[in-house]
Design a protein around this nucleic acid. Structure first.
Length: 657
RNA sequence: GCCGGGUUAGCUCAGUUGGCAGAGCAACGCUCUUGUAAAGCGUAGGUCGAGGGUUCGAAUCCCUCACCCGGCUCCA
């Protein structure tokens, strides 16, 4: 019998009978592998397990518990969902259904403009379980575009995809369905249900099952807001029940950290309906945290060679004509106010005003780099549907800096900015950083290509020199220049985009900014835009989620609460509080009106770092019972000792720069 | 802006077919004087998001608007 030889990832070789498939290969290696297998990578390309192998090929088995394996599971589960929906909703059109991070979705167009309800999800899920139980095979077939068009004649979205792919105009959405194959590949589950797909898929639906449909949403066809709106169902799918449960548990944990919920519970801030959408008021407890954040930021900026400036909330529209904001972002600006001497707008950015400060007198090269810093409040008319707690808000304060420098200074300045930004972020408990480099959007930019290239190159070289991991985001730049965004990873592994460093050759030109060089000639400075927290509001929201509301001692609204065991200890408790206030600590006192246990519980729910209990023993010798957040109760701690510990703790938290 | 779901006491949430507005926690008062995560009793708290409509009667059905939530689109 003829044999073929296959190379495995570990370099070993294996002989198999001719006509063998990846399934045969997996079985020959071990039954556990065969059970976990969902697809194969053959000579670098993902294939179905059932595809025949040829001699000399490199083959790796993809198991369900790998990222690639889960991707296959999710994509296959999406097909099952599409089949369930087409069965339950005759006449439903289906468009695309890719695997995404943690799950999958599928977009549908239901007859008569019908929309899904949450209740439909249970029915669809039940039908999906039937399909999985039936263990339908995923049968791949390839056909010519004309045949595919005939097959999907009653599926307009599929036809659109086939036409785009066969005419070579496929985009990334299409590619998810079909790749860029010359022939159209399809997967058939039943004589009735067939879907366009590049694959690979699991051999049969029986391999699926650890999934859950999560939510319904509207989604524009091909992301085009002028196009039809489809009905999207999101689901999640995993290799095992344990993995699915773990994922659902993670979601619950994330929900507990929701800053909107915690902001109410901890009395930090609110969004009163009377104020209008996307506008927040800071309550005293949120206010003190914000003050601490800002004080720390100001101190660091002062030490970092920044100069403080202040600019008004309104500006004449001419200013934003000059900057270009009105031509690019008019829709995102609050509407104008007509006044005696012109049209005024609430400012959406601080940079134009900082340019005016630069331009207020003649500048010398000796002044550069000139670093202007402002906690500048801006207003942006975010569309109603995009508002989201503190993360997307209409009035917010940027910790905004604009640095004017020479071309020679540019790279060092960017590198020192990277250093400065991450150093400040470390004080807030972030240690894991990555970067994105956003390049020119060919549809939306000002300035010359040459300037864009120089700016992009300066940013790229700085990242290389600083040795920070980064990805390129094509076309994601601001209209005036390319940028580096710094992402941080939070306590539960989510990433948040925080800081931004933007290189700008264009605004200095638009504002005609100049300095006198050592050669006594006039030169144009380069401008760096830099926001560190980004928006104070948003950064605060990220901090709430990162710490789950339990701010580190240096940042906690209240650092300690003194609890007298009984009324008799009230006087001593007041003395303790007075002493701690003297030391600059933020402390309050809960009188003995309620039982001790109840007051402790309340303090714990408020996530106060230290609960200090004082009773007879303490009054006698000047001590405290110290109940730290997340730690063990310690009795008989001397007051001086406690002060020393807290002061040391705060110093250590801020010494991470 | 678009699609879908919501809004009842400070918070979390019940409220049947359209028929007297409810609970727990919190607040306040009294009793208890307490040693490490919820003492007991009592009191008060509401234009049921706003406005309009249907109806003998609307928290409940219909319309408009505001705000919130999940997505899409957008994000200087």
């Amino acid at each position: 019998m003829a044999e073929i030889t296959i190379s495995l990832p570990d370099g070993s070789q294996r002989s198999l009978p001719a006509g063998a498939t990846a399934t045969t290969l997996a079985e020959s290696i071990g039954s556990r592998l065969a059970k976990a297998a969902v697809a194969a990578v053959v000579d670098g390309e993902e294939r179905d397990l059932g595809a025949p192998l040829a001699g000399g090929q490199q083959v790796a088995i993809v198991t369900a518990d790998s990222e690639a394996g889960r991707h296959v599971l999710r994509h296959s589960t999406a097909h099952v969902m599409a089949q369930a929906v087409t069965q339950l909703f005759p006449g439903a059109k289906f468009s695309i259904g890719p695997a995404i991070a943690d799950g999958f979705y599928y977009d549908f167009d239901l007859p008569g403009g019908r929309t899904f309800t949450e209740a439909d999800l249970a029915d669809i899920e039940a039908r999906m379980r039937d399909i999985i139980k039936a263990d339908q095979p995923f049968v791949r077939d390839e056909l010519a575009a004309a045949d595919a068009l005939r097959l999907f004649a009653d599926q307009p979205y599929k036809c659109e995809i086939i036409q785009r792919v066969s005419s070579g105009a496929a985009d990334s959405d299409d590619a998810a369905e079909l790749g860029n194959a010359e022939t159209i590949s399809i997967y058939r589950n039943t004589p009735e249900f067939v879907d366009l797909c590049r694959g690979p898929h699991v051999p049969s639906t029986g391999r699926l099952g650890h999934f859950k449909l999560m939510k319904v949403a509207g989604a524009y066809w091909r992301g085009n807001e002028k196009g039809p709106m489809l009905q999207r169902i999101y689901g999640t799918a995993w290799e095992s029940k344990a993995a699915l449960d773990q994922h659902l548990h993670r979601l619950e944990e994330a929900e507990k950290r929701d800053h909107r919920k915690l902001a109410v519970e901890l009395d930090l801030l609110s969004f009163p309906q009377q104020l209008g959408g996307g506008l927040a008021v800071w309550h005293p407890k949120g206010g003190i945290v914000r003050k601490l954040m800002e004080d720390y930021s100001r101190e660091r900026h002062l030490n970092g060679g920044y100069q403080f400036v202040f600019t008004p909330h309104l500006a004449n529209g001419n200013l934003f004509e000059t900057s270009g904001h009105l031509s690019w972002y008019k829709d995102g600006m609050y509407p104008p106010m007509e006044m005696d001497n012109g049209t005024y707008y609430p400012k959406p950015m601080n940079c134009p005003m900082h340019c005016l400060i630069f331009d207020s007198r003649q500048r010398s090269y000796r002044e550069l780099p000139l670093r202007l810093f402002e906690l500048g409040t801006v207003y942006r008319y975010e569309r109603a549907g995009t508002l989201h707690g503190l993360m997307r808000i209409r009035g917010f304060t940027q910790d905004d800096s604009h640095i004017y420098c020479t071309e020679e200074q540019l790279q060092d300045e960017i590198i020192s900015l990277l250093d400065f930004v991450m150093s400040v972020l470390r004080a807030f408990g972030f240690t894991d950083f990555t970067a994105n480099l956003s390049t020119k959007d060919p549809q939306k930019y000002v300035g010359t290509d040459e300037n864009w290239e120089r700016a992009t190159e300066a940013l790229r070289m700085s990242l290389e020199k600083y040795d920070l991991d980064y990805k390129i985001k094509e076309g994601d730049a601001a209209f005036y220049g390319p940028k580096i965004d710094i992402d941080v990873k939070d306590a539960i592994g989510r990433t948040w985009q925080l800081s931004t460093i933007q290189c700008d050759f264009n605004l200095p030109e638009r504002f005609g900014l100049e300095y006198v060089g050592a050669d006594n000639n006039r030169h144009r400075p380069i401008m760096l835009h830099r926001a560190l927290f980004g928006s104070i509001e948003r950064f605060f929201g990220v901090l709430i989620e990162h710490y789950a509301g339990a701010f580190p001692t240096w940042l906690a609204p209240l650092q300690a609460r003194v609890l007298p065991v009984a009324e008799a200890h009230q006087h001593y408790a007041e003395e303790v509080m007075a002493r701690l206030h003297q030391e600059g600590l933020r402390v309050d006192l809960a009188e003995a009106n309620d039982q001790l246990g109840k007051r402790i519980r309340a303090a714990k729910m408020e996530k106060i770092p230290y609960v200090l209990v004082v009773g007879d023993d303490d009054v006698a010798v000047g001590t405290l019972g110290v109940n730290p957040r997340g730690g063990e109760v310690e009795r008989g701690v001397a007051l001086d000792e406690f002060v020393r510990r807290v002061v040391d703790e705060v110093r250590a938290q801020l010494a991470v720069v």
